[in-house]
């Protein structure tokens, strides 16, 4: 039975607290965490309580238990808003959520929460030493959300549901006009509309090809030097020749 086990069972708050700090300094966050968890409720109102709470939150953070550390850092800066460590606590709370945010392919509820926290932090401490990092984190997360909506729109294109792809790309372009993926979305919308028209019933084809031309023009206006230019031009040329074919077979329609 180790010293640590004895400490865990002891009823001496001060001894436990002292040991917890030692473990913390040594980097043994697991043991520090165990001890702090026990003594914290009994230390409320004492001078050391502030430090204990911050350390407790940080032991979770260091052990990559980000859900817990986010919660504990939040409790810290809500309890001690005037503390010198409040700023760091708030930043670490946001960073915990940032670290906890999953890949773009999974549910992004925690990403949104993380972004809210970062914003809250930046409003509260605009001149913080952590501001640059916080801004960077925010950009990473927002790019992740962009990628998610772009990929889910592109999924319909991949699945060859071209009509759905056009609707999804249009939604994407409306909601994320300045996204790094807008250019590709804009090009893919032209291509999806062209393919959709191609597999449509003859009655609807002309109308739909014309819409593809509209999308092409929107694309070329916005991204005149696009890396998709060549491919887009090819689609445009194909669209024109299709429209010409329609005109020939049904001259009354034009």
């Amino acid at each position: 039975c180790s010293n640590f086990q004895k400490l865990l069972k002891s009823n001496d708050v001060d001894l436990k607290y002292k040991a917890a700090l030692e473990y913390y300094e040594k980097g043994d966050y697991y043991r520090a965490n165990q001890l702090l968890e026990q003594v914290m409720p009994l230390m409320t109102g004492r001078e050391e309580a502030e430090k204990a709470r911050f350390y407790y939150a940080n032991t979770h953070y260091q052990q990559r238990e980000y859900m817990l550390s986010a919660f504990q850092f939040r409790t810290f800066y809500e309890t001690y808003p005037r503390s010198e460590m409040a700023e760091e606590a708030m930043f670490l709370q946001a960073k915990s959520l940032y670290n906890d945010s999953p890949d773009f392919e999974q549910d992004q509820t925690s990403t949104v929460t993380a972004m809210e926290s970062i914003q809250e932090f930046l409003v509260r401490y605009p001149n913080s030493q952590f501001a640059a990092e916080a801004n960077k984190m925010f950009d990473t997360l927002s790019a992740k959300l962009d990628l998610k909506s772009f990929e889910s729109a592109r999924l319909y294109y991949k699945l060859r549901y071209y009509k759905s792809a056009v609707v999804a790309f249009t939604n994407f372009l409306r909601e994320n006009p300045s996204s790094p993926y807008s250019e590709e979305a804009s090009y893919l919308r032209v291509d999806a509309q062209y393919r959709f028209a191609l597999e449509s019933v003859p009655d609807k084809q002309q109308e739909r090809f014309i819409e593809a031309v509209d999308y092409y023009q929107a694309f070329i206006d916005q991204y005149p030097d696009s890396r998709f230019l060549r491919s887009a031009e090819q689609v445009y040329a194909n669209t024109q020749s299709e429209l010409e074919k329609i005109k020939k077979t049904n001259p009354s329609n034009s």
């Binding site: 392919e105 999974q106 990929e151 889910s152 999924l155 319909y156 699945l159 609707v167």
Partner: peptide, 28 residues
């Protein structure tokens, strides 16, 4: 007309695995 189709709660499964099974498609 259906405009956007989204999934939430998939903490493990990728979006495309869920979305490809769904029969309510944008534009329909």
């Amino acid at each position: 007309t259906i405009s956007k189709v989204t999934v939430t709660g998939n903490t493990k499964t990728s979006d495309h695995v869920v979305l490809r099974e769904i029969r309510t498609l944008p534009g329909q």
